[in-house]
Design a protein around this nucleic acid. Structure first.
Lengths: 137, 137
DNA sequence: CTACTACCTATAGTAACTATAGATTCAAGC
DNA sequence: GCTTGAATCTATAGTTACTATAGGTAGTAG
């Protein structure tokens, strides 16, 4: 099953059909082959690419960053300098995100586990993510 | 320095001035006090709240999720059932994000470290994030 | 060969900001 | 006290990244 219609691709990736056409239009997905009747026909490589784009989107990456990452994929034989710079920048963002999320995770877990008297005593979610500030709620 | 103008708040949080007013308009920030001349005056609590919103935005949370999290902050004495349900749902999302980001991090690090021959041999970013698929690039 | 669904293009609408326009206010210097 | 330039105000228009709609064509089951 290496050939897919747009509907099958949508089902596989969880991405909506119009969104797939949109990604093609803006150049993030290649123009696929067409059947005799002009319907789009996708292969596994494009499916992998779309899955990647969807994951990036779930992670909240701006389109520009996704394009940079796809650029690494599309030109694997670029100079190391270029690749490393882009990858390092993205890695910074990823690490920041992970640490923010870890803080949020701790606080959510605390809220869930502190639920034993029928009421949650205090919510410190804001404080947990408002680092560098002196929150006085 | 517990009282801030909108400009100072923007500088402190990295959020743009019109965006702050926008958050007020849609009810994610409270209407602040006003000076004699009608300019907005903010306190530390609002700054913490805004910092939180900005972080959530960087993390790519949809506004609805941010509102739910703020709802936990605004009504800390809700029933445990409500809080736990919301917190658990958000925790699920957070955990998903963390694991996706961890996968991306590994791949970015691999790309950076594999850069020793002047060229990056192969880019497997797509494959690393396109789990569940059999990418044949 | 009809009925139904999936697909096609093109365009309009939505969510979440972001920028612009024109008027008012503050703060510093004369 | 007055000017002048930056910051603020409101209101509205524009942008980004989708998402839905409209009107028509293609494939497929009975």
């Amino acid at each position: 099953m290496s050939e897919l219609t747009i509907g099958q691709l949508a089902k596989e990736t969880g991405c909506k059909v119009p969104t797939i056409r949109y990604f093609e239009k803006i150049g993030m997905l290649p123009e696929p082959a067409r059947s005799a009747g002009n319907t789009r026909i996708y292969n596994a490589a494009t499916m992998a690419r779309l899955t990647f784009i969807c994951h990036c989107r779930e992670l909240g990456f701006p389109q520009k960053a996704v394009r940079e990452l796809l650029g690494l994929v599309d030109h694997p034989d670029q100079s190391c300098e270029t690749v490393t710079k882009i990858a390092a920048t993205q890695l910074d963002h990823v690490n920041q995100r992970i640490s923010h999320l870890a803080a949020l995770k701790v606080e959510l877990e605390r809220m869930i586990s502190s639920c034993n008297g029928g009421r949650v005593a205090q919510c410190r979610i804001v404080e947990s993510l408002a680092d560098g500030t002196h929150a006085t709620s």
